[in-house]
């Protein structure tokens, strides 16, 4: 009995030695997200505007129905999204939109600090997603 007690105490004492800490002091030190991390979305820009061709695959596949797209045509007759909006409060970060996109126009970044003060701030419009 005593032996096991001492064994337990020695395990905790061993961890008391410096160099055992696994804490990352978060706001000061930030963990690097992995390459595949599914964080905040980003619309990929091409030339003077977004790559997106407003094909509606992403709102179709989205399980949370958080993507709003409205298609329009520019002066050359090329389709583009007049509205592209993601509601981050509904988004479940499943990555289906990225998987579905046929032109690789949307990707997910390593950005994970998505807290905000106002409801409206969670609606990411095209301009914000292009940043």
């Amino acid at each position: 009995m005593i032996k096991e007690f001492i064994q337990g105490l020695s395990i905790t004492a061993k961890h008391l030695l410096p160099g055992n800490s696994t804490t990352v002091e978060y706001p000061k030190v930030k963990l690097e997200a992995s390459e595949r991390f599914r964080g905040l979305h980003r619309l990929v820009p091409a030339h003077n505007r977004e790559k997106c061709v407003a094909c509606y695959l992403c709102p179709t596949v989205c399980p949370a129905k958080c993507i709003t797209v409205e298609a329009g045509e520019d002066e050359n007759g090329v389709k583009y999204p007049t509205v592209y909006q993601i509601d981050m409060l509904r988004c479940i970060f499943c990555g289906y939109c990225v998987e579905a996109c046929p032109v690789e126009a949307i990707e997910m970044t390593g950005e994970y600090e998505l807290a905000n003060y106002k409801r409206e701030d969670f609606c990411f419009t095209k301009e914000r997603l292009l940043k």
Binding site: A33, S34, E35, R36, F37, R38, I92, F93, C94, G95, M108
Partner: peptide, 15 residues
């Protein structure tokens, strides 16, 4: 969880 993140991109809801 780090491995999950590396593999699937999410730490918990791997999908």
């Amino acid at each position: 969880m780090d491995m999950y993140e590396k593999l699937s991109g999410a730490r918990m809801t791997s999908n």
